[in-house]
Amino acid sequence: GINSKLESAMCRETVLKRFVDTVKDDYDYVIIDTNPSLDNLPINALTASDKVVITVQAEPYAVEGMADLLRSINMVKRNLNHDLKIEGVLITMTNERTNLSKKITHEVRENFGGHIKVFDTTIPRCTKAAESTGIGESIFQYDPKGAATKAYEAFTKEVILNAEKEHKRHKSSYVR
């Protein structure tokens, strides 16, 4: 119901940003997970964010949907959040046993990897992940030793390692 509430809010694209700005100094990371639509909540999330991780399912039409999402991100960057950066693309719901999943993973890496980081980690399709979402529990609590949990842990490490490398790069460029 938040989309309908945001519809009538003053400066509706910045409601979430104003809230995040009040708490962000207390955290190293604030993660906002929204659906990939272009309603008010995802626009708010992009406006409030420093970086965006684009998730793309290893499903048909995923590559076409990415082009639409990239246009939306660029629109938000141009009009609402000039500092927004794309952290990378995370391929989800993969099934390494199927040719279709392998093909789509390859297409994402081929079509976008030249200008956007595509994370090495992929998240496998996993019934336990869907079950945990259904009961409102973290996959880390629901299935701590599962394949999806291990993949999300690897992805987290990859993001943190990239942030550390970026921090060192920026720090060394200021020293010169």
Rank of each mutant, 00 (worst) to 15 (best):
N3C: 08
S4Q: 14
S4I: 07
K5A: 10
K5T: 09
E7M: 15
A9R: 12
R12Q: 04
T14M: 15
L16C: 11
F19D: 06
F19C: 05
V20M: 10
T22C: 11
T22I: 12
T22S: 15
V23S: 11
K24T: 12
D25Y: 13
D26I: 05
D26V: 07
Y27D: 13
D28S: 15
I31G: 12
I32W: 07
I32T: 08
D33Q: 09
N35H: 14
P36C: 14
P36I: 08
S37T: 14
S37G: 15
L38P: 05
D39P: 01
D39C: 00
N44M: 10
A45P: 07
L46K: 14
L46R: 13
L46C: 12
T47D: 13
A48T: 07
D50S: 14
D50G: 11
D50N: 14
D50K: 11
K51H: 09
T55N: 06
T55Q: 01
V56G: 00
V56Y: 00
Q57D: 02
A58G: 11
E59I: 06
P60M: 08
V63C: 03
A67C: 11
A67P: 07
D68F: 02
L70Q: 01
S72Q: 14
S72F: 10
I73H: 05
I73W: 04
N74H: 13
M75C: 06
K77Q: 12
K77G: 06
N79R: 15
L80I: 07
L80S: 14
D83W: 11
K85G: 12
K85C: 09
K85L: 11
G88S: 07
V89P: 10
V89K: 06
L90D: 08
T94N: 11
N95W: 03
E96W: 13
E96R: 15
R97H: 04
T98P: 04
T98I: 03
L100C: 06
S101D: 00
K103W: 08
I104D: 06
T105S: 13
H106Q: 15
H106W: 12
V108S: 09
G114F: 01
G114H: 04
I116C: 02
K117S: 02
K117C: 03
F119R: 01
D120W: 08
D120I: 03
T121D: 05
T122M: 08
P124C: 07
P124M: 02
T127H: 03
T127P: 00
K128N: 02
A129Q: 00
A130F: 06
E131N: 05
E131W: 01
E131R: 03
S132G: 00
T133M: 08
T133G: 11
G134R: 04
G134E: 02
I135Q: 13
G136Y: 01
E137R: 06
S138F: 02
I139C: 00
Y142F: 05
D143N: 07
P144Q: 01
K145N: 01
K145F: 00
A148K: 02
T149R: 00
K150Q: 13
K150E: 13
A151H: 00
Y152Q: 06
E153K: 11
E153A: 09
E153C: 10
K157Q: 11
E158K: 00
E158V: 04
V159T: 09
N162S: 14
N162G: 12
K165M: 09
E166I: 06
E166R: 13
E166M: 10
H167E: 14
S172I: 05
S173D: 00
Y174V: 02
V175H: 04
R176V: 03
